[in-house]
Simulated assay, not measured.
Amino acid sequence: MRHTYTRFISYSFFFITLLTGCSQSSTSEKGQNSESKKLVVGVSMLSMQNEFIVNVHDAMVKKAEADGVELITVDAERSALKQVEQIESFIAQKVDAIIMNPCEVEASSPAVTKALAAKIPIINVNSETSTKPTAFVGSDDVESARIAMKYIAEKLGGKGNVVMMHGYMGQAAQIKREQGAREILKQYPNLKLIAHQTGEWDRAKAMSLMENWIQSYGGQINAVFAQNDEMGLGAVKALTDAGLKDKVIVVSIDAIPDGLQAVKKGTLDATVFQNAEQQGSKAIETAVKAAKGQAYDKETLIPFQLVTKENLAKFLK
């Protein structure tokens, strides 16, 4: 489904006089030398301490540079409150469009409401809010967890004990990846989820959490599903240190470079590729179209792909 938004820009009488004889459409054309004609997009990212989020942002920067778009990027540092304040600041600056990588489904929603009220297009990238933005660019997180848990179920022959590491609680990816994992668990009654807790997308926290689970459950654990690679790698380190890695399957999501290298080494059994480059570039493309009043996709979903040693080569750069 395609929607079109038109943004009206007010010019001073003097400026209009200078532009007499020029068509209004020419002012937004690519290649304008005047800085005043450059589209400005405000960007609020969940956390620039997270490798995958940084990869999404790098893709946005690359696409923005290619398209002559100015980005103003801020780091919400996992705070939805800070993120809402950042969007308020972008509104005050009268940016042409906003891209938000939401911290939380509910708590980041007021930012969407405020941007829409100010008639500024707001695009959610990678993660969602309960309030619908102008457009969403990302992937179906439910599907990523289905892929990961299905792989675990098949490797264990449908029987065994699983632990699950959640991401930052309340964030869309955490909610949907839990949903997808539980959908598959329901299909395998002999596959038991014996523990689940947040590792907050963090490698060190996940390592500590895995150490605690090893203390509590020891050799009972047959598989770990970590909702991102950072946590998966933390789990791998703890299991390796305890001499248990060869007995436990570990699967995670994102296919960050470290995750791919771990699959290559055989320490991480599988990961699920999420395309940061496409998410970032498509977010910029959508923001530009919405700001210019051009037709754009209301929702862009980029597929996930299972990565194992067998197909690893096509994902390594």
Results as ranks from 00 to 15, higher is better:
residue 262 A to V: 00
residue 219 G to H: 04
residue 93 Q to C: 03
residue 106 E to L: 14
residue 43 V to W: 04
residue 312 L to E: 00
residue 191 L to Y: 12
residue 145 A to D: 06
residue 286 T to F: 13
residue 222 N to Y: 02
residue 208 S to H: 01
residue 62 K to T: 14
residue 6 T to R: 12
residue 282 K to V: 00
residue 38 K to C: 07
residue 170 G to V: 14
residue 42 G to S: 02
residue 39 L to C: 10
residue 67 D to I: 07
residue 150 K to L: 09
residue 160 G to E: 01
residue 272 V to G: 02
residue 98 I to Y: 12
residue 209 L to Y: 10
residue 84 V to L: 02
residue 199 G to Q: 07
residue 123 I to Y: 05
residue 160 G to K: 15
residue 161 N to H: 09
residue 49 Q to H: 15
residue 216 S to D: 05
residue 186 K to D: 03
residue 125 V to T: 10
residue 32 Q to I: 11
residue 208 S to I: 03
residue 283 A to P: 00
residue 170 G to A: 12
residue 193 L to K: 15
residue 297 D to R: 13
residue 275 N to H: 13
residue 96 D to I: 05
residue 148 A to R: 14
residue 249 I to C: 09
residue 81 L to Y: 03
residue 248 V to Y: 11
residue 124 N to Q: 13
residue 291 A to W: 10
residue 27 T to A: 10
residue 47 S to C: 03
residue 291 A to M: 07
residue 37 K to L: 14
residue 214 I to C: 08
residue 246 D to T: 00
residue 144 S to D: 08
residue 1 M to D: 06
residue 11 Y to E: 04
residue 228 N to H: 07
residue 274 Q to L: 08
residue 314 K to E: 11
residue 227 Q to E: 15
residue 253 I to N: 11
residue 270 A to P: 01
residue 113 T to A: 14
residue 316 L to F: 13
residue 191 L to N: 09
residue 297 D to T: 11
residue 254 D to R: 12
residue 117 A to L: 01
residue 150 K to P: 12
residue 222 N to I: 05
residue 191 L to Q: 05
residue 221 I to T: 08
residue 291 A to C: 08
residue 192 K to D: 04
residue 265 K to I: 13
residue 282 K to N: 14
residue 196 H to Y: 14
residue 215 Q to L: 11
